[in-house]
Amino acid sequence: MTLVVEKASVTFTNPDKSKDALPVQALADASLTIPRQGFVVALGASGCGKTTLLNAMAGFLRLSQGSVTVDGVPVTGPGPDRGVVFQKDTLYPWLSVLENVAFGLKLAGFDRPKREAKARELLALVGLEGFEKSATYQLSGGMRQRVSLARALATNPEILLMDEPLGALDSLTRETMQELIVDVWASTKKSIFFITHSIEEALFLGTEVVVMSPRPGRIIERYHLDFVHRYVATRDASAVKSDPEFIALREEIRNLIHQTGAESHGRHLLARAS
């Protein structure tokens, strides 16, 4: 499956109800392709439209202009062909870990033995054997995101949309989770769209990184990378991350983001003054 976003724009009415409040352009003219087995990462400061873009792909919101299509078919709403992992933990505390993972299969009408067998298999994939019967609120943040990942995989979507899934984790857990996500991506051959505001994370994970900038949210730069392939081949994350090429690119993107952030902030102030 290939997911294509073409010239997508999203405009929200301004929550500020005063007379001269202009509509907020959350996303302007964004075009993007998530190829089969691609790992596309959207990188940018908060407010740059990353989540808006993901919500449009997931079908949670309608575009003001442009289109989102999966294999040429327009997306009209959320569906099990596009699994979503949220930043905020959205596990259901009234279900056990196993039942959470099996939830999508239950909705689809699979009987208990079938859906639980599949859920067990996925829990093993994310390294959570032995926690089937646990309550979700007894797990640590990293373990909960493992469960979320397993739950999103259960309905066997070809595309995974991940909205800053590691944003709330401590840096050590975060690195372990990055490697886990790469392993899952490599072994299941999913296409992934992944949001982060960590430059290092974006470079390590993405086969393509799109850098976004706020006000209005838009894509300002694209990079095609192979650091993730190097990691899959060598399984040495620290070597990949300390590679001079990696570091140079990290600094380049850091400068880019700071520049455009300052620039658009300046423009914003000018617009206000006039």
């Binding site: 949670f60 959320p78 699994g83 259901y92 939830f103 239950k106 909705l107």
Partner: peptide, 19 residues
């Protein structure tokens, strides 16, 4: 977000209410 999670797993309106 809890509702969206169910929607992206294919839940119908009735299933969202019930589950």
């Amino acid at each position: 977000a809890r509702i969206q999670a169910a929607q992206s797993l294919g839940a119908t309106r009735a299933q969202i209410f019930r589950h």
